[in-house]
């Protein structure tokens, strides 16, 4: 295996793990998500490196994987009734109430919020990453922000 992949893993896995925590809401699922995504990145490494954006690739994989895992898990949940959702880490300062409410959002809404407010990405980029339209990004974000009782900036209100 190419050494540069190992270097990438060493350099970026911590930041990717934190992004995974923001996406999934807990450390166990975040570790799982990062490991799975990096495994896939490893397979595609040469191709992705040629395109010069391994980080973007792996973050995209993680956002999509998060949503699809959740879908599958929900199905399993309905069939087998085996709740196994991770814990929420208690070591949080600030608005833990808000964090808990974020954790309760449907995964797509949550992914949109993470990409917009944690990753600071524009809606067009979020749409590309999640494979949905910009209109859907805006409507998902809008619904999520309403649920969380978050005041939108005026400019964004106009967009929506």
């Amino acid at each position: 295996m190419d050494d540069t992949f190992d270097e990438f893993v060493r350099a970026r896995s911590g930041a990717l793990f934190r992004y995974g925590v923001a996406l999934t809401g807990n450390a166990h699922d975040a570790a799982d998500l990062v490991q799975e995504a990096l495994l896939r990145l490893g397979d595609a490494w040469r191709r992705v490196v040629r395109k010069d954006d391994p980080e973007g690739y792996v973050r995209t994989v993680m956002a999509r994987q998060h949503i699809s895992w959740w879908r599958r898990r929900r199905r399993e949940h309905l069939v087998a009734d085996t709740p196994e959702d991770g814990y929420t880490d208690p070591l949080l300062d600030g608005d833990t109430g808000l964090w808990k409410e974020v954790a309760g959002l449907p995964p797509k809404q949550r992914a949109v919020l993470v990409l917009r407010y944690y990753e600071d990405l524009p809606d067009a980029e979020i749409a590309r990453i999640l494979g949905i339209s910009q209109g859907t990004v805006r409507s998902q974000a809008s619904r999520a922000l309403d649920k969380l009782r978050i005041q939108r900036r005026a400019i964004r209100m106009e967009e929506v």
Partner: peptide, 15 residues
């Protein structure tokens, strides 16, 4: 009401 900034902070702190 909360602000978008508070949301960004909550995500960052959690991560």
């Amino acid at each position: 009401m909360r602000t978008e900034h508070e949301l960004a902070e909550a995500l960052k702190n959690a991560a």
